[in-house]
């Protein structure tokens, strides 16, 4: 699995954007930051809590000049049906059918042939700024991802449990 400081592997894959199929490449992302989150499969009972959770907070991510992209091994057609099932998702879902991107990021489960539940925050230099993975049966916290994005964007030393508006630790140059 990639770690902070690693270069984010490029991708160029079909994706579902709302009700249509398109292609999306890393180089096309123009926002300062990117949240790339992998999930195991469409049509599951755990993933929608995350996929919909990110959708409900999309405005807050955009306010942080951050794009969101979901990735699974399902086809773009499946993503479209899944998006309809969920009542609409306002960010693209990448169709990593052969698991190439998941492998490149080191989060492909070769036994189950699905991506792990993993999240990467990619910074403006297109390097990994944050990486985490959790078991397939545990959903992630959208709030925590947003807190991480905000913390990274401050460029400051953020202590444990840091929240926007709270004080910072000493500057890195002071350490």
């Amino acid at each position: 699995m990639l770690k902070p400081g690693d270069v984010a592997p490029p991708f160029d894959l079909p994706c579902a954007k709302g009700d249509r199929i398109d292609r999306l490449a890393l180089r096309q992302i123009t926002t300062e930051m990117l949240v790339l989150f992998f999930y195991p499969r469409d049509f599951s009972f755990i993933c929608p809590t995350e996929v919909v959770g990110f959708h409900h907070r999309i405005a807050e991510f955009r306010a942080e000049n951050t794009s969101l992209i979901g990735v699974s091994v399902d086809s773009a057609e499946s993503h479209i049906r899944w998006i309809r099932e969920l009542g609409g998702i306002d960010y693209p879902l990448l169709a990593d059918e052969r698991g190439e991107v998941a492998r490149a990021y080191g989060v492909f489960d070769e036994t189950k042939k699905v991506a792990l539940r993993a999240t990467f925050v990619v910074d403006r230099r297109r390097e990994i700024a944050f990486a985490m993975a959790c078991p397939l049966n545990i959903g992630r916290s959208v709030s925590e991802t947003l807190r991480i994005v905000r913390a990274i964007r401050t460029g400051r030393l953020c202590p444990a449990e840091w929240q926007p508006g709270a004080g910072f630790g000493p500057l890195e140059s002071d350490l």
Partner: peptide
């Protein structure tokens, strides 16, 4: 955790 059983049944 109903979703765990739902997922297993799925």
């Amino acid at each position: 955790q109903p979703y765990v059983l739902q997922e297993e049944l799925l």
